[in-house]
Design a protein around this nucleic acid. Sequence first.
DNA 1: GATAAGATCATCT
DNA 2: GATGATCTTATCA
Length: 213
Amino acid sequence: MRSFIFQYITMKGKRLTREFFNRPTLKIARELLGKFLIRKIRRKIITAMITETEAYCGSNDLASHASRGRTPRTEVMFGPPGYAYVYLVYGMYHCLNVVAEKENYPAAVLIRGVIIVQNLKCKIQNPNPKFKNLQLLTPYHKLFTNLNGPGKLCRYFQIDRRLNKEDLIISKNLWLEDRGVKVKPNHIRSSSRIGVDYAGPYKNKPWRFFLDI
DNA sequence: GATAAGATCATCT
DNA sequence: GATGATCTTATCA
């Protein structure tokens, strides 16, 4: 068991730039761990630290929607980096991706899990290492809520296709920030991606990354 | 603990 | 007409 988190979050985050996303997708997927996803819905702000991602890399990646070529749905993946790719899966859940790499190279990082951190004045820590999954239900755990799974995440963040093609570099509704959390390499785990058994030689690529907390 | 089935629809063939 | 970058609930063992 690791004790990942005992770290201060800076109050004022630095927004991630276009350049951040104009880099190799696997690198971005790793580095998004510990970064913050922020959603503004009218006056309400939801702040969360990213704990799980998946990389979808280029036209050759048979797990990626872009492997079937350019379609109205996947078009945004072929565009410039830093935009949101939001789509509906299984008829009932939305998934949030951030477009990566240079224009005309279709790639994206799927945001799969976060920890909600509403009160940014606190320091975050793993309140009870016995709960690997941080299912935080007791008052002691009030400050943290683990949100695992891209579908649940989007439901909580009220993200649907209206946010497809949103420019996350300048958007006032949804964006990403660096708040100074330093993630050590030995806190990052990887595995094959979820739900892509059909992807042939790509189904076992270790392109899912998550924080071991 | 593991596995199976059902919900439900945009997208692509 | 078939298929999922999912999640929840039910039914086993």
